[in-house]
């Protein structure tokens, strides 16, 4: 047999097993049909128009008119408020959640950690709307809080239907989504790493900055993403707590579909919202990389050639 002769029995399949990849086909089809296709449809609608009172949309003439229309002063005001609430809310979540997660993962004895996680999950799995209503009860003019305020002679405070109420509501509602990823990362943090760092002469703060922080950075990023994205599109919290003063973009989009029956404009607004969220996420990802690059550069140790 010559070495270069082409094999007579060329590959009969690389492995003995059949291709398990096909198992993913049903989900792919399902999502293409009920997630991608509907999205493409509203993208299409957003280039159309609402020709008359009784028709929701019309695509006979394509234009960017709905996008121009979407950027009306009301929408812009609400949009900026949404952005503000989202950014502030996300940061507040991080500030509140990090010490909590750190305490749960590092300071609590292992046997209590499961219970602590369960305790975070119980409110999280309480109906989102219902726990928001809980805050509505607390903040309403007839609540025990208001009663107490009146008893102290401070009058009835205006708490409900303000931006502040929405801010409180979203921080509350999305806090578990920040705690859980942080906890999971911190839990995986090997305490021996910190011991090693202390052993190598770093103090507690230095150890935190140079060992803990770089390791938990991905968890922080996940938490920020998990909170910011749904917060930006929140529709329930401002509806229950915000009133007119605290409304958010989600409600604007919804009302075009529910009330105004203007699918074209509503679609354009939804696309704007989606694009804004993706833009912020991309911006954040770039920022995250930059921070990592700076840390790497700062901590860079060059290997001196010819020394070994």
């Amino acid at each position: 047999m010559t070495a270069v002769a082409l094999p007579a029995t060329r590959t009969r399949g690389r492995r003995f097993r059949w291709n398990v990849g096909v198992l993913a086909a049903p989900v792919a089809v399902w999502l293409l049909f009920f997630f991608v296709a509907p999205f493409v449809v509203i993208l299409w609608y957003s280039f159309g128009d609402k020709p008359s009172l009784y028709i929701t949309h019309d695509n006979s003439v394509l234009s960017l008119g709905r996008y121009v229309e979407a950027f009306n002063p009301t929408f812009v005001t609400v949009f900026l408020r949404t952005l503000q609430i989202s950014v502030v809310g996300t940061i507040l979540c991080l500030v509140i959640a990090f010490p909590m997660a750190y305490w749960m993962a590092v300071k609590l004895p292992a046997r209590f950690q499961g219970i602590a996680v369960a305790l975070v999950l119980v409110p999280y799995w309480t109906n989102f709307l219902v726990r928001t209503i809980g805050w509505q009860i607390v903040l309403s003019p007839t609540s025990f809080l208001a009663d107490a305020s009146r008893a102290l002679g401070l009058g009835t405070p205006q708490l409900l239907y303000t931006t502040g109420a929405v801010q409180l509501g979203v921080v509350y509602n999305y806090l578990p989504l920040m705690i859980l990823p942080l906890y999971v990362t911190l839990e995986r943090l090997d305490p021996r790493l910190l011991e090693a760092s202390r052993d190598l002469g770093a103090n507690a703060f230095e150890s935190f900055r140079r060992v803990t922080l770089p390791i938990v950075l991905p968890g922080v990023a996940a938490g920020l993403l998990l909170v910011f994205v749904p917060l930006m599109g929140d529709y329930i919290t401002p509806s229950v707590l915000g009133g007119a003063a605290g409304s958010m973009v989600g409600q604007q989009v919804a009302s075009q579909f529910n009330v105004a029956q203007n699918w074209a404009l509503g679609s354009a607004m939804a696309i704007v919202l989606m694009v804004a969220i993706i833009a912020v996420v991309v911006l954040f990802a770039l920022l995250f990389r930059l921070v990592k690059a700076i840390i790497d550069r700062f901590e860079h140790v060059a290997i001196v050639e010819g020394e070994a």
């Binding site: 009920f34 997630f35 509907p38 999205f39 449809v41 509203i42 993403l225 994205v229 749904p230 930006m232 599109g233 929140d234 529709y235 989600g250 989009v253 919804a254 579909f257 509503g266 679609s267 939804a270 919202l273 989606m274 969220i277 996420v281």
Partner: peptide, 11 residues
Amino acid sequence: VTPEIVNAVSL
């Protein structure tokens, strides 16, 4: 990561 409201209005 898609906001529910966007899903809702497209569905």
